[in-house]
């Protein structure tokens, strides 16, 4: 429930005590709190404030969804190949999937070889997704234009962004209430994002010494951010799972939370 803090102070229950009068107060306060929560709840959180995210990843986000106007930076495992992202692109695509599936448009900038089948299997609606594979030197301009009209913009900057440029894009996303998801790769990203998702402990399953097929990848995703997200949260995920989707890795929940 989204209750603004000053209101909560007004209606919050007094410290619980044994006296009957106190417990009556508490009941009344709880009732008014429920009313207040109902009143302050966004009419449609998905449209006005939050874009939905698939469950195992939603647990990582402080609001349980992608906050409109925010910037998320996703970095894969260091040591990814020259053309890979060490899991970063997978996490970013999975992050967009639920919102895309509920009608939001996605634009993917700077991804010359999107694996469309993988994106589809993760839940991205390809009919409402557009790819700008090679924005070249105009990448920042292209991203700025897309932020104006598209809910979710995923950016893989082809060149290292200058701080002023990155700042302008972040400000634009905030102003236009779009979500900017950056997979910086080796180009880097000079700004502190609202939320940072990092990949660690990545391991592929299914392949051995010639036998089998790659059947899924386990990874730990760690979210850190500002304010409410300052405390790091971890989730153990299958990304992708054997069906190409994202799923919780129940076997590795030891350090979850």
């Amino acid at each position: 429930m989204f209750v603004a803090s000053p209101d909560r102070r007004d209606v919050d229950a007094p410290p619980p005590g044994p006296s009957p009068r106190r417990s009556l107060d508490r009941e009344r306060d709880l009732a008014s709190l429920a009313v207040l929560a109902e009143r302050t709840r966004p009419v449609s959180s998905s449209q006005t404030r939050l874009l939905p995210v698939v469950p195992p990843l939603a647990d990582l986000l402080p609001d349980g969804g992608l906050r409109r106007g925010s910037t998320v930076v996703v970095t894969g495992l260091a040591g990814g190949g020259p053309e890979g992202s060490g899991g970063g692109i997978s996490v970013a695509l999975a992050l967009l999937a639920a919102a895309s599936g509920t009608g939001s448009w996605c634009a993917l900038v700077g991804l010359p070889g999107l694996g469309a089948v993988a994106a589809h299997d993760l839940g991205i609606d390809l009919a409402r997704s557009a790819v700008v594979p090679r924005p070249g030197a105009a990448w920042a301009e292209v991203t700025a234009v897309l932020i104006e009209g598209v809910d979710l913009v995923m950016l893989c900057p082809p060149f290292p962004p200058r701080p002023a440029m990155a700042r302008r894009l972040v400000a634009r996303a905030r102003e236009r209430r779009s979500v900017l998801v950056v997979v910086p790769g080796r180009a880097g990203w000079p700004e502190h994002p609202d939320l940072h998702l990092g990949v660690s402990d990545m391991r592929w399953d299914g392949a051995g010494t010639g036998e089998g097929y790659l059947s899924g990848r386990r990874m730990t995703v760690t979210a850190t951010g500002r304010r409410s997200a300052a405390r790091p949260r971890h989730r153990h995920l299958w990304l992708p799972s054997a069906t190409g989707a994202v799923a919780e890795d129940a076997t590795g929940t030891g350090t979850a939370g």
């Binding site: 991804l111 010359p112 694996g115 469309a116 993988a118 299997d121 990848r217």
Partner: peptide, 12 residues
């Protein structure tokens, strides 16, 4: 066809 999961980057 190689079974899923599919690769996220298919090099042009």
């Amino acid at each position: 066809q190689i079974p899923p999961p599919a690769p996220v980057v298919v090099h042009p």
